Amino acid sequence: MRYVQSHHEDVYHSQLKNRCQNSNKNIMERLVIQAFLDGLRDTETRKAQILARPSKFVDALGRALEFEAASQSFRG
């Protein structure tokens, strides 16, 4: 506070008040994918999905389901 000039407080308050949520769907998609990957319990599935770098949630979900099916078939 001691290094900030007093008029900056008004500027920051005005910027915060006028700020609105961005509707960037790419960011939302990345957040959905990240939440999905963080929620995967199997570490091998999670690792495979992270390395695949999915750009869409449906791709991440499909790859995870395929990976799980393949893993189960190898387990017997």
Rank of each mutant, 00 (worst) to 15 (best):
M1R: 13
R2Y: 07
V4D: 13
Q5S: 13
S6R: 15
H7M: 05
H7D: 11
E9M: 08
E9V: 12
E9Y: 09
D10C: 02
D10P: 03
V11F: 08
Y12G: 06
Y12P: 05
H13D: 12
H13W: 08
S14R: 14
K17A: 11
C20I: 12
C20V: 15
N24W: 08
K25G: 06
K25H: 12
I27L: 15
I27H: 08
I27Q: 11
E29C: 02
R30W: 03
L31Q: 14
L31R: 12
V32Y: 04
V32L: 09
V32S: 04
L37Y: 04
D38W: 01
L40Q: 05
D42M: 04
D42P: 01
E44H: 08
E44Q: 12
E44P: 00
R46I: 03
R46P: 05
K47L: 09
K47G: 03
A48S: 06
Q49V: 03
I50W: 06
L51W: 09
A52P: 00
A52D: 05
R53H: 11
S55K: 07
K56L: 07
F57L: 10
V58G: 04
D59Q: 03
A60D: 01
A60N: 02
A60P: 02
A60H: 00
L61S: 02
L61H: 05
L61V: 08
G62D: 08
G62Y: 03
R63G: 02
A64S: 11
A64I: 01
E66K: 03
E66G: 01
F67A: 05
F67T: 07
A69R: 04
A69M: 04
A69G: 00
A70W: 08
S71N: 15
S73C: 06
S73A: 12
F74N: 11
F74E: 12
F74C: 09
R75S: 11
R75D: 07
G76I: 05
G76N: 06
